[in-house]
Design a protein around this nucleic acid. Structure first.
Length: 321
DNA sequence: AACGAGCTCAACCGCAATACG
DNA sequence: TCGTATTGCGGTTGAGCTCGT
């Protein structure tokens, strides 16, 4: 594999650093890092990289671990609840990705940042306005977020997961019942006891893939990766999606998001606006949405604006300019 | 089938903050 | 106190993928 990877700037470095690998991680490197951390724990990333025998910078190891290999990293689509939370938290804190990520357990700052750039900024582009403009923020607040709440409620009603009494005149909407982990213990509750060299994996993973032992240092073999099997031996590229991490993802698949959320839920923080309040924020968009096809349950998570919305918003923007 | 445009996301960079000797 | 090493964060890049033509 080309260790120069993606053609990033290859700044002249010290002779020792010239041996450093760059670019996508291989399965072998992933196992090396996982095993080392399982046995020795995190911390001191530069020395960790050296001691583990990885020809990577400490920075690179840290990033790979935090964004990809950690057992509690969640992968898959950003859920409606998460979208709503991201929008809300971003409106409060701006591009404080790390801070926002603390409130979305299992999601990394990188993932949230990518979500924002690809999805949210796309909508701003559609509306021909700046993502930081007041107009766009208003559109988010009065259109996008109420719709997310509606869809969350609709989904909850359809699946019977509503835990409310049905008399939802309280400040906490039904949708908020699926909010989760707004406490700050996610980092200390990450299913790992690294000092013991044991990794606590989801029961199904342990049962199915590790014979119940869950001891990485002895159980891991690169062959469990179908990627490795299908690519050129160990040199095969892992990224962008390493099959390896399927063994670590928690929950194991994203169909369990609802259960995962509820199992980990805490109350929506009082300092945040309850999503239900978006219904009462001054505009009644629901009235015009009764027969709107985007609400009919398809996977339209990105399609929160319709033609009328865009037209309407652009009219609003124009009159405000 | 081939091609190009647009999108996604892992991994990089630079810089600021913090820790350490 | 100072210099160096390390960590953490936000911004950016680009390979690979998807989708439309």
């Amino acid at each position: 594999m080309d260790v120069k990877g993606r053609g990033f700037n290859s700044a002249i470095q010290s002779e020792e650093e010239m041996d450093l690998r760059r670019g996508p991680w291989t399965v072998e490197e992933d196992f090396t890092l996982i095993n080392y951390i399982a046995n020795h724990g995190e911390g001191r990333w530069n020395s960790l990289a050296r001691c583990a025998g990885l020809k990577r910078t400490g920075k690179s190891c840290r990033l790979r671990w935090l964004n990809y290999l950690r057992p509690d990293v969640r992968r898959g689509n950003i859920t409606l609840e998460e979208q709503l939370l991201i929008l809300e938290l971003h409106s409060r804190w701006g591009n404080r990705w790390s801070k926002i990520a603390q409130h979305l357990p299992g999601r990394t700052d990188n993932e949230i940042k990518n979500y924002w750039r690809t999805r949210v900024q796309k909508h701003a582009k559609q509306l021909k306005c700046d993502v930081n403009s007041k107009q766009f923020k208003d559109a988010m607040r009065y259109l996008w977020m109420p719709r997310l709440v509606e869809r969350i409620q609709a989904a909850a009603a359809a699946t019977g997961t509503s835990s409310g009494s049905g008399t939802s005149t309280t400040t906490t909407a039904t949708a908020t019942n699926t909010y989760h982990h707004l406490n700050n213990n996610s980092s200390s509750n990450n299913n790992m006891n690294l000092s013991s060299g044991q990794v606590v994996l989801p029961p199904s993973v342990i049962a199915n893939d590790f014979g119940g032992g869950g001891n990485l240092s002895t159980s891991f073999t690169p062959e469990i990766s179908s990627t490795a099997a299908s690519s050129d031996s160990f040199g095969g590229q892992v990224s962008p999606v390493s099959d390896l991490t399927d063994y670590y993802n928690y929950p194991p698949n994203n169909n369990n998001n609802q259960e995962y959320f509820q199992a980990n839920q805490v109350n929506y923080p009082e300092s945040l606006i309850s999503p239900s309040s978006y219904f009462n924020s001054g505009l009644d968009f629901q009235a015009t949405e009764q027969n709107n096809p985007w609400m009919d349950g398809g996977d339209v998570s990105d399609n929160l604006w319709n033609v009328e919305d865009i037209w309407f918003l652009q009219q609003q923007f124009n009159t405000n300019m």
